[in-house]
Design a protein around this nucleic acid. Sequence first.
RNA 1: GCCUCAGUAGCUCAACUGGACAGAGCAUCGGCCUUCUAAGCCGACGGUUGUGGGUUCGAGCCCCGCCUGAGGCACCA
Length: 610
Amino acid sequence: MDTIPSFAEELSAWLGARFAAAFPDSPEAARAGRVVPSAKAGFGDFQCSDAMQLARPLRLPPRKIAETVLAGAALPDCVEKAEVAGAGYVNLTLKGAALAARAAAVAEDEAHGGVPQLGADRTVVVDYSSPNVAKSMHIGHIRSTVIGGSVVEILRALGYEVIGDNHIGDWGTQFGIIIKGYREFADREAIAKDPVPELERIYKESYARAKADEAWMDACRAETVKLQQGDPENRALWQDFIRMSRHTFDEIYERLGISFETTRGESYYQPQLAAMVERLERAGLAHESRGAVVVDLRDLDPAFAEQSRKAVEAALAKNDAESAAREDGKWICIVRKEDGGFNYNTTDLATMETREKDYHPARIVIITDDRQIPHFQQLFAITEKLGLVSPGTDLVHVAFGTITDENGHPFSTRSGGMPKLKELLDEAASRALAIVREKNPDLPEADARALAETIGIGAVKYSDLAMDPITTIRFSWDAVLSLQGNSGPYLQYAHARIRSLLAKYAEAFPGEDWRAAPILLGDPLERALARRILAFPETVVAAGAKCRPNLVADYLFCLAQDYSSFYQKLSVLKAEDPAVRAGRARLCAAVASVLRRGLALLGIRAPERM
RNA sequence: GCCUCAGUAGCUCAACUGGACAGAGCAUCGGCCUUCUAAGCCGACGGUUGUGGGUUCGAGCCCCGCCUGAGGCACCA
């Protein structure tokens, strides 16, 4: 498999050698020469700022250092000129032909889009979405689902074997509550028609009764115990609930274009839990405390113990006994409850164990909201201490900010709770449909609806993926459903315009083939596009390393912006010179190709027309 | 009390993890459709990056203090 070389690496190697040759006695100079894309067009195509760092060790002015490095140097073939600028920057300008050829190679690499296959022969598990059985998916679930779906695609583009795992909430005490309620007051017709809202209603009502009525509560507990002991009737009901819920989830997943390699809910791991606690105990990590079995993180790491001791001292110094007492909780991880049951700590440890056994992953990525940060810190610490995964396995918790209402407060159940995911998607498609009809009055109804769905869903996904996952989102219909500016449709639109343009090209100049035409880069706008295309592979690498799809989203927005400026000012079909015309067509095709590939990494479809 | 995350233009967010003058979108104002799709383009307005110190040739980013907001801190996940 041949990878397309990167200018940044190539030029770094060259400049690094120059630094080493110019200052052979300096260990600092031996490490210098890192070249990165220039911040601005006026500063060439690539730049290096290392001369400034060397000023002190070499006791020379930075500009002098840069000049010495470049003095008498034979430039690499691809470089037009190298110059010293500003305080001591080395700016490198590429030859247009080299830039154009490399950009074309990236865009026209059908298999990988120029993305280095860093993950070849390695497996990653991505744990995402993870809704709860018998509950509707609301907008709170969209982040894990959409971010996870994109992380999966990005890692796959890097060559990893990716196992997407939907760790659904299908176990726990809530099932006793639902079973009891289902037996007593289920509306069978509603179940048949649309089961999940009815299950949700049953749960809420049964839960309310349990709170008010001790006898009802006991009955619920009894149902839970029966379920856990394998009572056939309860077991069958429970499986029904799961089946009905998964069917509803699947409708959403299909609309979102999400699919999983495996769906192992919490129940899958139940048989392993007792053994897991024993394993912890045998390893001396778990012990009995207040009737429960716990792992005390302070036993794992002396630094934790020290930190905790200081906090207790600080609290006691202020006569705050309550805070001092609360300190324990931060370090205690319960793996078996007082009543003998297990909780999600135990389940998650067993999940780690199973993933290691089944996949030997190089990396495990878990995508949940940021309230679980402490949980996963504990979990990862115990996982490593106990050796549940191979040493060196990269355990990553991608924490995303929660979604609040328009005033920045948590959605209250009193005011209807979070909008349902289905409502959001419907509203997005409906807003898009109005515009699709207006812009494409000739489009058949079925096509218009399909296109509106693609655009609406794209808008919803993009609004989520365009920001850093950790950002807390203040929900606003208008922001999520925006079809203008920095939005999904803006990217789709740029792509659709190119596709339409190329179709017209084929009509206007039949027999003319632009595919082999050199890309000429006569205008700065063309050059900017080529430079942007070149940055695609490194963008995907960074997004994969950091599990941040927003880097891809941001990149694509810039690419679409560059293209829109180009499109406005420079004509393709009407270019006078046939060579310019053909070269521009190929450049446009390259942009379309990168846009399509990049949108796919975000899980967004790129329609042919809009 | 301790811990985590965040604080950047009126609003929503970026900033290639320490590099050149902090960039976009929305909103506001002004231009551009007999010429490849105006879901677009060009321009204007808008900033002491919460705050006070420190490190550095160089800080939105790193270190220390403080302020504000969100979340977590023993059996729900």
